[in-house]
Design a protein around this nucleic acid. Structure first.
Length: 310
DNA sequence: ACCCAGGCCCTTG
DNA sequence: CAAGGGCATGGG
């Protein structure tokens, strides 16, 4: 059977920014505004449909009823190409997401969902905050962090706060972080900020191999397998990273149970930490270097089908 | 009251 | 090495 008829792949920016990858996007009037490190990104919906798919056009023109504010991200003239990874190998992504009927059906259903390339420091703090809580609270914590420690800016007559940089956030006390609602994560954020400020160049992680970079990240207090994979996938160019949280874990055994002979894996309520590497390896063997795209689709799908709120 | 949430750390056996 | 408890916090 030919599963490779969908080409080129589309982009749905609104779906993408509401898929649990980023947590600081807000809707004002007909526009979405997002904080990415030092920048405010803006996407305006101009058509009556929030996004119109046009099968026969390249992804370039599929943004036709989305108005991108190019001034917001000066380093990248067309920031949407950078942020939504539009220069990734379209054919290979398409092939990966069409690997078998299970993933192909999900791919077709949520077309336009893409990976985001985030500011690394913001991504690290975001997913440290994400441990053992829900998305609504992640948003709440991060919003509080920006309000307390980020530069205030006015853009389109709306008040925003940028995400604090390492130096700004390392000034925060544990008490202030607890005040932001981080709870026991406060000590992680404090420790990680100090460590990055003094001992770690985040950009150097981009040049390392997946495992090498992961080893560096998991040395940080509060970062384990899953959080490291989120950081690697969403901000450090490691598209083979496949974060396995409780939702992806459930999806794996619903659709890819055949991959795992060990039945004891299925019974666990939590993701078994000691089996994480084994699962990850099998996924990489099967899906290859763009495994991370599969993860995002599985995550999105399993949550949608359980009617979770974003 | 109890369980869960984009987990991780630490202690025990 | 494996298993299990604890952790902050709020919503269902």
């Amino acid at each position: 059977m030919n599963y490779n008829k969908i080409n080129p792949i589309p982009l749905d920016p609104i779906r993408t920014i509401n898929s649990g990858q980023v947590f600081l996007w807000e809707n004002h009037n007909n526009s979405w505004y997002g904080i990415d490190g030092n920048y405010i990104l803006k996407i305006t919906i101009t058509g009556k449909e929030r996004y119109k798919l046009s099968e026969n056009k390249k992804f370039l023109s599929e943004l036709e009823n989305i108005d991108i504010d190019y001034n917001a991200f000066p380093e990248y003239k067309n920031w949407n190409y950078h942020f939504f990874r539009l220069y990734d190998n379209q054919e290979l992504i398409n092939k990966t997401l069409s690997k078998d009927p299970s993933i192909l059906n999900i791919y077709k259903k949520y077309k336009g969902l893409r990976l985001i390339r985030q500011d690394p420091f913001q991504c690290i703090i975001s997913f440290v905050c994400a441990s053992n809580t829900n998305i609504k609270r992640i948003r709440y914590m991060l919003k509080n962090i920006t309000k307390k420690f980020g530069k205030r800016v006015i853009y389109n007559n709306i008040n925003f706060n940028l995400f604090p940089n390492v130096n700004e956030l390392s000034e925060a006390s544990i008490e202030e972080l607890i005040g932001c609602g981080l709870g026991y994560r406060s000590k992680f954020v404090k420790s990680i900020s100090n460590h990055i400020k003094n001992n770690l160049d985040l950009n150097s992680l981009k040049d390392m191999k997946y495992l090498e970079a992961k080893t560096e990240l998991t040395k940080l207090f509060g970062i384990g397998n899953k959080i490291a994979d989120c950081i690697l996938l969403f901000s450090l160019e490691k598209t083979e990273a496949f974060p396995i949280d409780i939702w992806v874990y459930r999806a794996l055994f619903q659709y890819y149970g055949w991959m795992f002979k060990d039945n004891s894996l299925i019974k666990s309520i939590k993701v078994p930490e000691n089996k994480y590497k084994l699962i990850h390896n099998k996924i990489n063997d099967y899906f290859g270097k763009y495994s991370g795209y599969v993860q995002q689709y599985l995550y999105y799908h399993i949550r949608e089908s359980n009617k979770r709120t974003w």
